[in-house]
Design a protein around this nucleic acid. Sequence first.
DNA 1: TATGAATGAGGATTCATTCAT
DNA 2: CATGAATGAATCCTCATTCAT
Lengths: 207, 207, 207, 207
Amino acid sequence: MNKREVHASVKDERLVIKRRNQMIKGAVSLFKEKGFHRTTTREIAKASGFSIGTLYEYIRTKEDVLYLVCDSIYDQVRDRLQKDLDQTEGTLESLKLGIANYFKVMDEMQDEVLVMYQEAKSLSKDALPYVLKKEFEMVSMFEDVIRRCVENGELALTDKQVEFIAHSIVVQGQMWGFRRWALQKVYSLDEYIELQTELLFNGIRGG
Amino acid sequence: MNKREVHASVKDERLVIKRRNQMIKGAVSLFKEKGFHRTTTREIAKASGFSIGTLYEYIRTKEDVLYLVCDSIYDQVRDRLQKDLDQTEGTLESLKLGIANYFKVMDEMQDEVLVMYQEAKSLSKDALPYVLKKEFEMVSMFEDVIRRCVENGELALTDKQVEFIAHSIVVQGQMWGFRRWALQKVYSLDEYIELQTELLFNGIRGG
Amino acid sequence: MNKREVHASVKDERLVIKRRNQMIKGAVSLFKEKGFHRTTTREIAKASGFSIGTLYEYIRTKEDVLYLVCDSIYDQVRDRLQKDLDQTEGTLESLKLGIANYFKVMDEMQDEVLVMYQEAKSLSKDALPYVLKKEFEMVSMFEDVIRRCVENGELALTDKQVEFIAHSIVVQGQMWGFRRWALQKVYSLDEYIELQTELLFNGIRGG
Amino acid sequence: MNKREVHASVKDERLVIKRRNQMIKGAVSLFKEKGFHRTTTREIAKASGFSIGTLYEYIRTKEDVLYLVCDSIYDQVRDRLQKDLDQTEGTLESLKLGIANYFKVMDEMQDEVLVMYQEAKSLSKDALPYVLKKEFEMVSMFEDVIRRCVENGELALTDKQVEFIAHSIVVQGQMWGFRRWALQKVYSLDEYIELQTELLFNGIRGG
DNA sequence: TATGAATGAGGATTCATTCAT
DNA sequence: CATGAATGAATCCTCATTCAT
């Protein structure tokens, strides 16, 4: 169940990928602006640079576009994280760096991430699991890093705590984008990272 | 700008309130099930117990329903919190209790809160500020409590830290509902509160 | 299974009947001209004297229109026949009159009958049986008349022969409309009736 | 006006014939299943074993396919009849055999014949006459046989009666396929032929 | 006030046909 | 000759909103 196939009438695999990338790019910017429901398929086609007929050569339903968009965003986020988190050696310092890096990714991709989280609920019962799975994967990446710290004796945490903290980190990263109207007026990204790290490591009472 | 007026053709104030409450109740359960966009005005009228014609005696557009729903949910959440947070005396213990109470409210109202956050983006540029303002208010309520702790010397925090922590608390409460598919399978509410409090107060490294 | 219900959003039964009659009238003349598939729902609405939205208050799908049309034509044909065939007393003379009358009905309604037989195949698996049933009924009406002649000793026929002859009569009546391009150029209706009766009663070799 | 030319871009006559035969075969089975309108040109191409582009090298419009199909079916029916009817010597016995043979052909080709009669109406004003002409030819073949019987003194019929009877025979043959849902459940083909012959020759009152 | 029939702009999707390779 | 990607007009159907009763 790693990927949900989206049917294309066109056979040339290379072309399918190319056109879908055009599509995703066009769709993201439209979804960003007006949301999935308020965006018409014609607008998507136009923003993608081809006709409505051509659009439907590469998907079966409008919802397919949303799925492709979500799928693609997750893949981008994950790729950017993986490179980083894989190298951590299980020290608190590298955990901190991992978190900071994640927050930076979430800053750069905040539009995409916002789109994904706000529209994912419009996916059919059929497609949703594939997207949730990706969210789980992201949490897992942090779990792994934290667990390595535990194994190294740098932290003393139960499994449940590890999972919980991983969720917390992921959510706090998303929060930067979701609450930009509040946070980004008050804090710079670096400040936000600093505050988050401080709170996460030392709690309210400070170190 | 405390409330945005939603026009009603009907003059009898008492009736307007009664009908709108019917409306909100019906709409919330529909939005919960299928989202704002997939819900039709006819369905809302039916779920509210009156005809489509009558529905439009109490609102001007479909979006008005969404605004009323969001507005109402916020009011409920705030009412339930205020009672509690107002009494805190500025001790860490009472802060903890306030947080626990907030999490419980978010648990009980998770469906409504979910609806509100997922659909609020569909509000027009016109209505959005009124809703965001309420979100600010909620954050402020926690800020006040924390600030009282600072004033009492129980905590040493800058203003920016106070605001940041208030945001964090609010978000972590919402997280319980948003990520229920992950969290509520693993933790009980009490466990979740325990973990959150522990992390918030002492950080990753424990007390 | 006497009637297949076609859903209407409008509740006023009287109005539903009135609007559907407008609809059937408009649709028949369009189907006559260009067939079911080449007729658009907008054209049907226009020909019926109301808007496309209103059309869909009285049906669910385009196919419903076809079903209503077929259903209505059958009902008209049957009503006109029944009056007549019911009174026959089981003499050859009254059988002849019944046949002549049937041919006259088929002449007057040839457009409708043509439409029905040419488009009925476009009905869904769901609706088809209801229409076939009516065709059976028509055959049965003739079977009854013939059987009465047999009972009276005017004819000596097995059951199978009776059924077969009834089918033959029905088909020859339809033939007048179906092959109008050939027959109606050569024969008047009365001539046609005369020839058919003669052939049916006495065969090729004449009396 | 013996044949209506259907334009092909391809010059090689042999190839044109070969490809069109593939096309007709594929199209008949599709039309049988879902009718002309519900069949897409892509499906026809696929069923024919070549691409949509190639299909359009051999026809100009979708309707051309229908014309070719109808034309081909008529040719087949006529070929099979002609062999037979040409040899009749103008006796009642050979007329009977001719009729029986025609009914057998109509039995074997009932699918094709059904398709042709149900879809022919979709032919344009342009193509229809060519198809009707073939129908006339078929009637003529029977007229000829009957006329020979008259010339031989085996039957006493006017010209109008001859034409009328020829039509009747043709229609009764088609009836076997059209009303298969009723007739073929009750009669075997041989029984049906027997009943038809008896009725045609002796009429209702028997010999 | 309450009702529900009427409206028609708007949206998703299909499919015959073309044309560059 | 063969292919199949591209096109966009055409079509079915929905649904927010209005208004006469």
